[in-house]
C-alpha cells in the first residue's frame, strides 16, 4: 500500500480512537475532570490557602500546572492501554494484522489517539482551573511542546503495557502501583526544594518530575530543574518508547501465534 493508502489507514485508526473515547465520554472525559476539580477545591482552595506561597506563587497557581499534567499523563496512558488491550482481548487486532497496514502506521494512529484524549482531558481541566485561579502562560511554545511530548511518552508507555498485558489486571497494575506513585512524587503538589537533600536527589530519578516542571516552567516561568534537561529527558523517552513499541509490534510475538 502506497503512502496515500497508509495515510488513509492512519486517519482511520485516529478517527476510530477518538470516536471510541468520545462515544464513552461519561467514562473517559467526565471522571478525570471531576477528580481534578476536587483536587483544585481541596488542595488548592481549602488547604492551599493555609499553605501560602510555593516557588514564589500562590499554592493554587503552583499546583494547577501539575494537575493539568497529571490529567494528560493519566489519560493518554489510559486511552492507549485500554483501547489496544481491548482490541487484543476481543481479537479485533486481527482486523489490522490481516490488512496491509504498516506497523509504524498502527503505532502512530494509537499514539495520536492517546494524545487526543490526554489533550482533551487536559483542556477540560485547564478550563476548570480558570474557575479557581487566574492563569497566564509564560511561554506558549514550551507549554504546548511539553504537553505534546508528555502525551506521546505516556501513549507509548500505555502501548507497551497493552502489548505485554494478558488480562485486565495487567493493565491496571502499572497505573495503580507505578504511575500514580510516580505522579504524586513527581512534583505535582510540591517543589523538591522542600525535600531533604537525599530525597530531592532521589526525586531526580523520577521522569515525571521533569515533565511536570517543564510544563510548570511554560506556564509560571519557575522550575525545580533545568528546562533543557527536561526536553532532553522527554526526547530520549520518546525515542526509546517509540523504538521499543515498534519492535514489539513488528515482532508481534504477543499478538501473533
Amino acid at each position: 500500500m502506497n503512502f496515500t493508502g497508509q495515510w488513509v489507514a492512519f486517519k482511520t485508526i485516529v478517527y476510530r480512537e477518538i470516536h471510541r473515547f468520545m462515544r464513552i465520554w461519561v467514562q473517559t472525559l467526565v471522571p478525570p475532570a471531576i477528580t481534578i476539580a476536587l483536587y483544585f477545591l481541596i488542595f488548592g482552595q481549602l488547604i492551599g490557602s493555609r499553605i501560602g506561597q510555593m516557588g514564589g506563587f500562590d499554592y493554587m497557581q503552583f499546583v494547577v500546572p501539575g494537575l493539568i499534567m497529571m490529567a494528560v499523563i493519566q489519560n493518554s496512558y489510559a486511552n492507549v492501554v485500554s483501547s489496544f488491550f481491548g482490541t487484543k482481548f476481543q481479537r479485533n487486532i486481527e482486523e489490522l494484522l490481516v490488512a496491509p497496514v504498516l506497523e509504524i502506521t498502527i503505532l502512530l494512529g494509537y499514539i495520536v489517539g492517546g494524545m487526543a484524549r490526554g489533550i482533551a482531558v487536559g483542556s477540560i481541566v485547564t478550563l476548570l482551573a480558570l474557575f479557581f485561579t487566574d492563569l497566564t502562560v509564560n511561554n506558549w511554545w514550551i507549554t504546548i511542546s511539553m504537553v505534546l511530548l508528555t502525551a506521546i511518552v505516556f501513549s507509548l508507555t500505555g502501548f507497551i503495557n497493552a502489548i505485554f498485558a494478558e488480562s485486565f489486571d495487567d493493565i491496571s497494575i502499572i497505573p495503580t502501583f507505578v504511575l500514580t506513585p510516580m505522579i504524586y512524587l513527581g512534583g505535582v503538589f510540591y517543589s523538591i526544594d522542600l525535600l531533604p537533600s537525599f530525597w530531592a536527589k532521589i526525586s531526580l530519578a523520577n521522569p515525571i518530575l521533569y515533565m511536570v516542571n517543564g510544563f510548570r516552567y511554560g506556564i509560571l516561568g519557575v522550575s525545580d530543574i533545568n528546562i533543557w534537561q527536561a526536553y532532553g529527558m522527554l526526547v530520549v523517552f520518546v525515542i526509546i518508547g517509540f523504538s521499543v513499541s515498534l519492535y514489539l509490534l513488528a515482532k508481534a510475538e504477543k499478538l501473533r501465534t
Binding site: N2, T4, V8, A9, T12, I13, E95, A99, V101
Partner: peptide, 10 residues
C-alpha cells in the same frame, strides 16, 4: 473502518 485499513477513503 475495515475499508480504511485497506486504504479506502471513508
Amino acid at each position: 473502518t475495515q475499508g480504511g485499513y485497506y486504504g479506502l477513503t471513508r
